[in-house]
Design a protein around this nucleic acid. Structure first.
Lengths: 351, 351
DNA sequence: TTATCTTAGACAAACGTTTGCACAACAGGA
DNA sequence: TCCTGTTGTGCAAACGTTTGTCTAAGATAA
């Protein structure tokens, strides 16, 4: 109520446009437009006059109008499962760096790992006519028609990290087979003989990759592959606890390669509660290299760093290059980054 | 190169518009527009026909055109220090929920706690003509002209959590004075006599608030206020370590109220390395209630929950209500949420 | 029958840019 | 004098919506 007269005062509302500048300088809007773009077709005097007046009047171009005219929006949609996961917030960091530098805007959407939400988001994007989409699919998603529909609308998409099968578009991921291979090999070299794999859920490509790397390393190290040493978890604490207990009961592992740090941490709780000394009776290696592990009494001995920042950065770069024509959108970019095995200084229990 | 002829094929590029639907149904575009909006001015038959054809042709409205016409952008800019901090990613979650439901878009910007970056971002926003800004200022920022300039351009701003002085706009924060008060009182009731305060840096309003609540509780509990029990840290591990060591050397605290969970964790490392038994010889309480604390051997006994999700949610709601006229932008909203002291089940060292 | 009211829809302007084309003025060369 | 360039600018259309006003036809009432 307070200031409603003031708010309705029309003179305050009018924002100055190209037309207004043109009117004041007695020239045409097209001239002003070109002058602002520093077109060589406009004389230096006119250009200067326009720039001065624009500055003086605090002119800001209407991005909306420009977008409409030019058929672009300057918006890059980022669709991720959950930014509170450190991996994804780092991905966003990498993306933002590139997109901001290119004077575009990051529009953020979270699927919270739910298929229906992801679908709804992509449908929204179709009408928003974004310049491109960076997508990491939800854990839950099993069908991918929504992605294909966006591609059909000629919206460039770059898939990050979680790459669904059968979708033919640009992608950036980290070679987790190699990561699992290196991690397992490292455990074997350290003398571990019974290395367990606490893998992720079946449908995830990431689980498949880790499995392959693990097996490959066992073979190379001449260790036998035992099914009792391999478990899949659905990433809930309850399930992780159950499977870790099963491992301890039946397989007597001396090391565990965990799907990610969270799985490792939950599994370690189980081991501790059963009197095992972490990294002494049983060694842990996992994926992700979360910053929180620095605060742990007994963090995993090593972690496979997946370079999330670089994944985001690279994916965003591909999109920007496609949009400015540096890269031909028709040639699909499929980039595989190399992971890195980060070894921590060893902390063992000394009672 | 591959498909460039195909890409240039004009027939593929044309997206269907209201005009196209109108042409096919031999009616005018305005009728189509109104039909799509289910205007009662259009007959039921026509409405149905329009909807059917729109569906069949996969019509998506051009948000850009609509925005231009309606003088809005549908974009809410979110400017935060760092989304990898759990607090802020939860804030984003709350914001996204509201903004997405209102069919608007979240544009994300991170200042990385740097003043120059924050300034640059807000300048960009001025020309992008966003519908509103949700801002949590950078730790580094001491001057706030960039915020005022945005307000001068009639762009509604809601400040979150970190509220700078002298800026008169909407704000949502959590009452940290009360949080500190409750936390300190709880420690006192538990029998702690020498409660230290490991506070944040001077310029932060948040530090001031915690200080006041701490003092108030000490007085109420009839404990003496000792300067040697109060330290300020700059939130780096090095400084925290130094100040915690000073505390142990000179003040013999039996409890520590830490600025946030990270400060608490670093300080606890120091205590452990000096042989103190956490939550037995020295009790910890802090702010934030990070999820990582569930994985800790000895988490802080209690944490002051600041409800970041709710902060984001509330702030976004204010913005949306201002923009749809439910709320008058001229009446400033200053909302203070109540914190909550979360008590953990006690874990003590049992050697 | 005429006057008034409703209904369903059409017309056209507007939002603020950008850009292809036209054009006037002036120059230089033949 | 005419032709051809060059330079600087204006005109108008276009991007895809939304919305105020107008109209024609039919309905109702006097």
């Amino acid at each position: 109520m307070a200031n409603y007269i003031w708010l309705n005062c029309p003179s305050m509302k009018e924002s100055i446009t190209i037309k207004e500048i043109a009117r004041r300088l007695h020239i045409s809007p097209s001239t002003v437009s070109r002058a602002l773009q520093n077109s060589p077709r406009i004389s230096v005097q006119t250009r200067q006059a326009v720039h001065e007046l624009a500055e003086q009047l605090q002119y800001f171009p209407s991005i909306t109008a420009r977008n409409l005219r030019q058929g672009r929006t300057g918006i890059v949609a980022v669709v991720l499962p959950e930014i509170r996961e450190n991996f994804f917030s780092e991905v966003v960091n990498g993306i933002e760096e590139v997109v901001f530098a290119a004077h575009s805007t990051v529009a953020l959407y979270q699927s919270h790992d739910r298929y229906d939400r992801e679908k709804q988001i992509l449908e929204t994007l179709a009408s928003n006519q974004v310049d491109g989409v960076l997508l990491s699919v939800a854990k839950e998603s099993q069908q991918f028609g929504h992605i294909q529909r966006l591609l059909d609308r000629r919206i460039p998409i770059v898939l990050l990290d979680r790459i669904p099968p059968k979708i033919n578009t640009h992608q950036v991921e980290c070679n987790m087979e190699k990561g699992a291979f290196e991690a397992t090999k490292w455990l074997a070299r350290r003398g571990c003989q019974r290395i367990a794999l606490l893998n992720g859920p079946q449908p995830l490509v990431a689980s498949e990759e880790r499995y392959r790397g693990y097996i490959k390393a066992l073979i190379e190290a001449k260790l036998s592959v035992e099914n009792s040493l391999i478990k899949r978890v659905d990433l809930t604490t309850a399930d992780i606890t159950e499977k870790m207990n099963q491992l301890l009961d039946t397989a007597r592992p001396d090391a565990v390669l965990a799907f990610n740090d969270y799985v490792a941490l939950d599994a370690m709780q189980v081991c501790r509660s059963r009197g095992k000394r972490i990294n002494q009776d049983i060694s842990f290696v996992s994926f992700a290299n979360l910053p929180l592990t620095t605060y742990l009494e007994y963090p995993p001995l090593a972690s496979v760093e997946q370079h999330p920042y670089k994944i985001g950065f690279t994916a965003a770069e591909i999109l920007m290059k496609i949009n400015d024509g540096t890269l031909n959108g028709a040639e699909l970019q499929k980039i595989v980054l190399e992971p890195e095995l980060v070894i921590r200084e060893e902390k063992t229990v000394n009672l």
